[in-house]
Write a protein that binds this DNA or RNA. Structure first.
Lengths: 344, 344
DNA sequence: GCCTTTCTTGAAATCGTTTCCAGAACACTT
DNA sequence: AAGTGTTCTGGAAACGATTTCAAGAAAGGC
């Protein structure tokens, strides 16, 4: 195997010093045009490729950003990750991912390792209960951090890091208002992880809509799925089979929606005649289901892009004009799954 | 900001040489127990954390592996990536991902950059037409490569790299045999990227089943979706609305299945009465659809794990006992979407 | 008690870059 | 022609670890 060609070889071959080669190759400032041309030509001929490790060591910048997310295989996260990755790659950064399965220990370990590897920045969406430990861990480093749809509030109440936030509150409010407008009075919100931002905001919006409309708040039923096992079918069966069952549901669009639809079918409830359904998140399932499910939609690509942009601003050092947060709006996509309730 | 603590600081504080610190911290061989204990204690007290970049530069091993995949946001890929990442992380490797959107140029660029970053190994599932260029690019390096469900055949006909292969042929054959057994004689296979391994193998298995059963091969209809735009709904409409329409379809379970189901609905075809459906891949959609769709299932986690394992064998240098490929079987999960065709 | 072997130890080299520094070359002004 | 900047250039010092090497110390065998 032939040894890899280093900057030293190029210098020798071109008959100049190491420093000149380095200067010629990056920037080209403080170097005469003739030498620059020669060096570049020789480097190409020899097939020289700079060693990022060595460069990183010297420049104290690894050219990599980390992405800490509960589970990349969740399509919602995956799309965000891909979008962010694409934008960061454009800017010359490599992205390393770590799925943590919502396990605080693994989150800590990953954050720890990210710092050891001197990553230039971190995108993070901590899972369930880990918020405190992982954020403390991150805070101890000087690495720029951007939060994905989580609360960036520190102990002192100040936003500690920039964040990309989705307006789940506004979305839930719009959906609820829509259902109330159709005449529904008992509506259930099926969501997960009540103490995390997305669900918390949704719940808030849900209740606000009831309050605004002057509807009986007892009609706003919550169904929290802490473990989205077997598509949450069991809980939904109980909910829909109960005495004062809701005439409409707003369900998280990944697995919970699937479980809810199946439960409805098992109970012989027809959508939208007996039950109106709104999906939180416009998934394939929602779009393709029969009938097609009305959905709250926000752009996952935007989330990824915005996060990457926020991080890049920090990395470029544009602290002055760097925004500290991005708020993404949520749309209600009307389809066929909602109707006025039958006289109850 | 306080400067980061290096091995030099530890040496000074412990009153020993740099080499002793290094020895004490890794392995602990060739160092007296007393010094080892002292050094470890001092290192912990000072909060020393080794710099991976510096270490990598010296040891010529970055501790990172790359993953080159067409699109991480595809749930199938995402699951594989997550599984591989988990296993590699256990072994101390970090994983960097690059989605290439099937763009040969981006694939090349990514492979290029991976090499520049001195990644220790690469997991790769090239998209469409890029096979040649990207493999040539990879072949020029000495980095261990593991192929994900693609043909690892080189110009000379020899398998160049280890690969994790899914038995799509066997799966398609089983599904086709099942449908033929139900009495279907006109079956359509809806798949994508006919020249890539997964679809090619499927097509082969599909035809083999027809041949084995002595059925008229003209009944084996192919519908190749090169662009899975709008869920391939248009093509499927034409197929199902045509003169000698198939009585059963086997459809790729991501978006094509969705388009097919919608097309069937639009044409007023009831599943399974008028049309039997088998999904290739057990997606949420297949499991939750009404009626539930019979599906070909293989474990994406296994693919990821197997790929990681194959790569780790190479990285550990167990070339001697390293396997060169893993073949994963495909099961047919029977549900409610298939029935005997009505007398035609 | 001396020689040989093994084990510890620290100094120094190395990995491949970038960057600081000082001197050289050159152009320009007076 | 001398003085004063400005731009190029190469040597050498980082960056922070690991690893080689040789010397010193301890242990063991006769």
């Amino acid at each position: 195997m032939t040894r890899v060609v280093t900057i030293r070889d190029v210098a020798k071959a071109a008959g100049v010093s190491l420093s000149s080669v380095s200067r010629a190759l990056n920037g080209g400032k403080h170097v005469s045009p003739r030498i620059a041309r020669d060096v570049i030509e020789v480097a190409k001929r020899l097939g020289y490729r700079p060693d990022f490790l060595a460069r990183s060591l010297r420049t104290r910048s690894s050219g990599m950003v980390g992405c800490l997310v509960s589970d990349v295989s969740n399509p919602l996260n995956a799309t965000i990750v891909r979008a962010a990755e694409a934008k960061l790659r454009e800017a010359g950064y490599l992205m390393v991912v770590a799925s943590t399965a919502n396990d605080p220990n693994r989150e800590r370990a990953a954050a720890d390792e990210f710092r050891g590897r001197r990553l230039d920045g971190i995108l993070v969406a901590p899972g369930s209960g880990a918020n405190e430990t992982i954020w403390r861990e991150l805070a101890s480093g000087a690495t720029p951090v951007v939060i994905l749809d989580r609360d960036p509030i520190g102990d002192d109440g100040d936003p500690r890091w920039p964040a990309v936030l989705v307006d789940h509150r506004g979305g839930a409010k719009a959906a609820t208002r829509y259902l109330l407008g159709l005449g529904h009075r008992r509506i259930a919100l099926l969501t997960a992880d009540a103490h995390m931002r997305p669900s918390r905001e949704r719940i808030a919006g849900f209740r606000e809509a009831f309050a605004e409309a002057g509807a009986d708040p007892a009609g706003a039923q919550l169904c929290i799925q802490s473990t989205p096992m077997d598509f949450a079918q069991g809980d939904t069966l109980a909910l829909l089979g109960g005495e004062r069952r809701p005439t409409a549901i707003i369900a998280l669009g990944t697995r919970i929606l699937a479980g809810a639809l199946r439960a409805a079918r098992d109970l012989g409830l027809s959508v939208p005649r007996d039950l109106s359904v709104v999906s939180v998140g416009d998934t394939d399932l929602a779009a393709i289901h029969t009938p097609a499910i009305t959905a709250l939609r926000w752009s996952l690509e935007h989330v990824g892009h915005a996060a990457a942009e926020l991080l890049l601003q920090r990395l470029r050092g544009d602290i002055a004009q760097a925004q500290s947060r991005a708020l993404l709006e949520v749309d209600l996509v009307l389809r066929e799954s909602c109707a006025a309730p039958r006289c109850s």
